[in-house]
Amino acid sequence: MESAETTLARYGMVIDLDRCNGCGACATACAVENNVPPANTSATERTGLTWLRVQRVSNGRQFPQNRAVYIPISCQQCGEHTPCVSVCPQNAVDVNPETGVVSQVPARCLGCRYCMAACPFHARYFNWFDPKWPDGMEATLNPDVSIRMRGVVEKCNFCHGRWQAAKAKAAANGARDIDPADYVPACVDACPEKAITFGNLDDPRSDAARASKSANAFRFLEKLGTDPKVYYRSDRAWVRRLADADVTARESEASRG
């Protein structure tokens, strides 16, 4: 039998922070695509479940010079020393060599949350509650993504169900490699400002690879050396200076003190 070699890809995205206006459509589309349940009534920002969370960070100046930047943060898909992979006692996390996507198999997860502590981007979420939809709304669930139970960790996987569907489509026609047009994560699809460019970073012809090398592109916490595959770009210097900050904590600091 022939060998099953496919072209290896390293999927990533470049998010243009100057285009993002904080409408939240990406986060909504993500929850719909990935069967993320509505918040439990006692859920808070800390116990919430959002594979993609849009952080609002202000420039700290007074009104009307005050400006905000909206930063969509999902799993940054670290390629090197992937912190969550190295700490998982359960082998529930790995890096898919075919896509570069950091996986999370919730059925295998035992809920120790070590990976959450290890993740520098706070992009992993724990199921503090049973997944619950209003009666009948189960009919709207996406069969391509499994439902996670209480007590396990989950996170963004670049809409892996869509990659699998693209892969199956290619395979049905005898091809090993997918058509890039068939694999677009839900957030990218939903952005009304076309702020997110997605593609194979190893393919020099892809828009994402080009955008990731453009001037004013940066990654968060690059100094940690985890080689994230989610890039950001902004022409505003104060926004680029956020790269070394923990933006997930800034909002409450800015508003409180």
């Binding site: 986060a27 116990t47 959002t50 709304m137």
Partner: peptide, 10 residues
């Protein structure tokens, strides 16, 4: 209720 992602969980 999924819009709670924008209002309650972030």
């Amino acid at each position: 209720p999924v819009l709670s992602k924008l209002y309650r969980e972030s």
